[in-house]
């Protein structure tokens, strides 16, 4: 039976996270004043984002994505390639290429399961030769973001649910699949496969990985 390697993105394969992508968009607003205001607002919210993420990924999503409210879809799409070239590409961990390469040599399908936005993931997935990906998507009304995510929101347990459905649809044996993440919030995603690996883990995931005897990998 076929198998796949599922990767979280932020902190796992790339050094950046959702906030970096948003900060890029904040920095590139129309007009210097607007850019400065939005950048300062973003920076001052970082402690709040960190606290929310530590507590609950869903809470973080609720607080974070509302910042996109009013952003034009066209503009975000235009900026995505530049975001990739200037921010994301240089932030890919050196070991990520090799990990994906070795994994592909094993005949595993390469799948990104990330809470990042589709706009930012698309060029990255192409660059890393990822076969499939699932991301979060902003809701747009009349071409402008509402600050909400379209369901299903990809985070925590819903990542694992998506993987189960995907495996069933693609006839993959989850016991033979691999999963890689850096964050404790992805524990469900790691738990549903036969070969979970903690990558550049935070302290909580490191301790969990040690308790479960999972491999701990440093791609930095």
């Amino acid at each position: 039976m076929a198998a796949a390697a599922f990767y979280d993105l932020d902190g796992t394969l790339v050094r950046t996270n959702l906030v970096h992508a948003f900060a890029f968009s904040a920095r590139n607003q129309q007009g210097i004043l607007k850019s400065i205001t939005k950048t300062i607002a973003t920076l001052s919210s970082v402690p709040l984002f960190m606290a929310a993420d530590f507590f609950n990924r869903r809470l973080f999503n609720d607080i974070f994505f509302v910042r996109y409210k009013g952003e034009s879809e066209d503009r975000l799409r235009c900026l995505s390639q530049e975001l990739f070239d200037t921010v994301l590409k240089p932030s890919i961990f050196p070991g990520a290429y090799e990990l994906i390469d070795k994994s592909r040599q094993l005949g595993l399908r390469q799948v990104l399961v990330t809470g990042a936005l589709d706009l930012t993931v698309q060029p990255l997935a192409k660059h890393l030769k990822i076969d499939d990906y699932v991301t979060n998507r902003l809701e747009f009304v009349d071409g402008y973001a509402t600050g909400r995510l379209l369901p299903p929101v990809v985070a925590a347990a819903s990542k694992a649910s998506w993987m189960r459905i995907y495996a069933e649809k693609e006839k993959l044996n989850l016991s033979d699949c691999y999963s890689y993440s850096d964050s404790m919030s992805d524990l469900p995603m790691l738990s549903v496969v036969g070969h979970p690996t903690a990558v550049n883990p935070d302290l909580r995931l490191r301790n969990t990985a040690l308790q479960h005897d999972w491999p701990i990998l440093d791609l930095r």
């Binding site: 390697a5 070991g95 090799e98 990990l99 094993l106 070969h195 491999p215 990998l217």
Partner: peptide, 13 residues
């Protein structure tokens, strides 16, 4: 032997 995680841990760790 071909587990990508173990290969990376051998090479980088």
């Amino acid at each position: 032997a071909k587990n990508p995680s173990y290969i990376e841990m051998y090479r980088r760790g």
